[in-house]
Amino acid sequence: MAAFFRNLLKNKVMLFMVLPGALWFFFFSYMPLVGTIAAFKQYRFSREGFWASLAKSEWVGWDNFKFLFSTNDALLITRNTLLYNIAFIFIGLVLSVAMAVLLSELVNKRLAKVYQTGMFLPYFLSWVIVGYFAFSFLSMDRGMFNQIISWFGGDPIQWYSEAKYWPYILIFVSLWKSIGYNSVVYLASIMGIDKSLYEAAMIDGANKWQQVKNITIPMLSPIIIIMTLLAVGKIFYADFGLFYQVPRDSGPLYAVTNVIDTYVYRGLKTSGEIGMSTAAGLYQSVVGFALVMVSNYVVRKIDKDSALF
């Protein structure tokens, strides 16, 4: 015990630095875990508060989980959630790494910072604002795209009624908003690569592409694997704002915009079933945890040093 307190005093500065993040995780990630009990109860509101209502609610076992799997939409929302996230992970990975490499190769560092700031800015915009941006381009009457189509003699497109265009629109909007943020991680890793490796490659006559292929990408592989593993853990989560705000909750688009999160939200809005919503969140968390463990196990078998843990 004495050794424990000595270690606390020795590392007090570091511990104080970690304290805000630890408190955030405790209050917003660990304390709410108790509320997962609602996934197995028929939760009913009362004036006595959440915990009293939870204690008095009737146990229903796995009935809340049947909501996701007993409807005709179960396969549709699962398919949409998985396919969109797979596209976001792999296309986003390629574009983020490419953008980081391009920024690192710019000779004018002030110009590189301007480009980096411009790419980083969309990440801070809320999906409500992004949804209105998209509407300014896709509006039937005054949208920029329809005006351009009309100038060339074409017929305007009812974007918010034509589902076939929206997989591409959603992927583009998501990548536009996130690539700048994700590229910062890879750019920081590139900045940490020993410059003598590039100097030696230049002496051997390697061009820029050969330097990127044989030095940059191999040196980035550990962080690429870690970021991919973390993304795989959220593969059953969908960005609610992207799939709800950008398509403007248009009914004709549900076939390609309805994902687990929006489906649960609409169900919660119409039925008010807290237990059902909690069951969906628990299902997503458990599946994500299992995917991270399996993916990490596969990576450890291939390359132990590249594994997350």
Rank of each mutant, 00 (worst) to 15 (best):
L23G: 04
T216D: 01
G267R: 10
M119H: 02
D63V: 12
F25A: 13
T78P: 12
Y265V: 08
K177T: 03
R47V: 12
V232D: 08
W159V: 04
G281I: 10
A238S: 09
P32E: 02
V299G: 00
Q211Y: 08
S189K: 06
K109H: 08
V184T: 04
F120A: 07
L125E: 07
V232P: 00
S29T: 14
D249L: 13
Y186K: 07
L106M: 14
F120I: 09
L291R: 03
F240P: 00
Y168S: 13
P156M: 10
V298Y: 08
M293P: 09
I157M: 06
I148H: 06
F25S: 13
K10V: 10
Y263D: 08
L282H: 06
K41P: 09
V18R: 11
F145G: 00
I179V: 06
S183C: 10
F27D: 09
A2R: 15
I193Q: 01
R79A: 07
S174Q: 14
S285V: 11
I235A: 02
S139N: 12
M276S: 06
G192P: 04
L68C: 03
S150G: 11
G192M: 04
L230R: 12
F28P: 02
A255N: 14
N214Y: 13
L125F: 08
L111S: 10
M219Y: 05
I77H: 01
Y84C: 05
F25H: 12
L230H: 11
N214D: 12
M144K: 15
N11A: 06
T71K: 12
V130A: 04
Y297L: 14
M202E: 14
P32H: 03
W59V: 10
I225N: 05
R6C: 11
Y84M: 09
P156T: 06
L197N: 00
M119E: 02
S126A: 11
L23T: 04
A307H: 02
A201E: 04
F40A: 12
T270K: 11
T117F: 08
S29R: 15
N296H: 00
F90R: 02
A200H: 10
I77R: 00
P167D: 03
D239V: 11
E162C: 14
W59E: 05
W209I: 07
A200W: 07
V299D: 01
Y244A: 10
R300K: 13
K195F: 07
S29W: 09
G180K: 02
I235S: 05
A280R: 02
T36F: 12
F172I: 14
V246T: 03
V292I: 13
E58F: 08
